[in-house]
């Protein structure tokens, strides 16, 4: 008993602090760092930029319009062939500033300065000038975290707008992504516009994503194409979040 008390006298404070530190770290981990991001949002508010009219964004917007046009033309053609097509593009979105990037190097994430208080929900679709950017994976009252489509774990069902050949795409960490086709001999050529397909479980169909940069048809097990994403993800400062109708799918990051 006496030795126990002496040990406690000597190491009590230190032990307490160690448990306090471990405990609070665990709480932060379980709450996905909610407290940290809330304070971070407050601290970084004075540094939020206004919407820029930089040329880069403008060209990206141009590209997006062009791609949408191609997509719409192609869709229109299909519509004429097939009656009963339902346009499922969400209409109104929430504009949100990007206040932070990923806190480590392996994940391609951004943090937005709007959260559940502004109506953002997990699974929401994030788009910027240029097209699709990512998906909301976590929400706190005034921030939310986005898993970008350039992250290797984020897989999107995509289609070539011109020929409607389907495949899925995984990110490659910069503004490049790799598309794997379901067909053995897809009709695809560099410059083709890529958009989300109706097979995508997480994204609504018809969102512009990017352009085909190069094609490797001899790749095994499936032909591959390198896609250049049209949204300038590293230069983005504002994005628009659309509510997602396909939120019943699991949202593991």
């Amino acid at each position: 008993m006496y030795t126990l008390r002496r040990w406690w006298d000597r190491h009590g404070l230190r032990t307490g602090l160690v448990f306090l530190a471990l405990g609070s770290a665990w709480v932060l981990r379980q709450t996905q760092g909610a407290a940290v991001f809330e304070v971070y949002q407050r601290v970084s508010r004075p540094f939020e930029s206004m919407p820029t009219s930089a040329e880069r964004i403008e060209t990206a917007e141009m590209q997006e319009l062009q791609q949408r046009l191609t997509e719409l033309e192609s869709q229109n053609q299909q519509l004429q062939e097939m009656l009963g097509y339902v346009q499922s593009r969400p209409t109104e979105g929430i504009t949100a500033p990007i206040i932070g990037r990923s806190a480590d190097h392996w994940w391609q994430q951004v943090t937005l300065g709007r959260g559940s208080r502004d109506g953002i929900q997990v699974g929401g679709i994030v788009a910027g000038p240029g097209g699709l950017v990512g998906r909301i994976t976590h929400v706190t009252p005034s921030t939310s975290r986005v898993l970008l489509i350039s992250d290797p774990t984020s897989q999107v069902g995509v289609t070539i707008s011109r020929s409607r050949h389907m495949g899925y795409m995984r990110g490659q960490a910069a503004n490049r992504a790799v598309m794997e086709f379901f067909d053995k001999v897809p009709d695809v050529q560099p410059g083709d516009v890529v958009s989300t397909s109706s097979f995508s479980q997480l994204f609504p169909p018809g969102f512009p994503i990017g352009r085909v940069e190069s094609v490797n048809l001899s790749k095994s097990p499936a032909p591959e194409a390198v896609i250049e994403l049209s949204a300038p993800i590293n230069a983005l400062e504002w994005v628009v979040v659309y509510p997602n109708s396909r939120t019943e799918v699991s949202n593991n990051p």
Binding site: V18, A21, L22, L28, R29, Q30, V36
Partner: peptide, 21 residues
């Protein structure tokens, strides 16, 4: 070790918990 553990758990919370930092 304990400092690394604590900061690693916090970084897990700020990015993604699998794999752990």
């Amino acid at each position: 070790a304990i400092a690394g553990l604590v900061l690693g758990l916090i970084q897990d919370g700020m990015t993604a918990p699998h794999p752990t930092h």
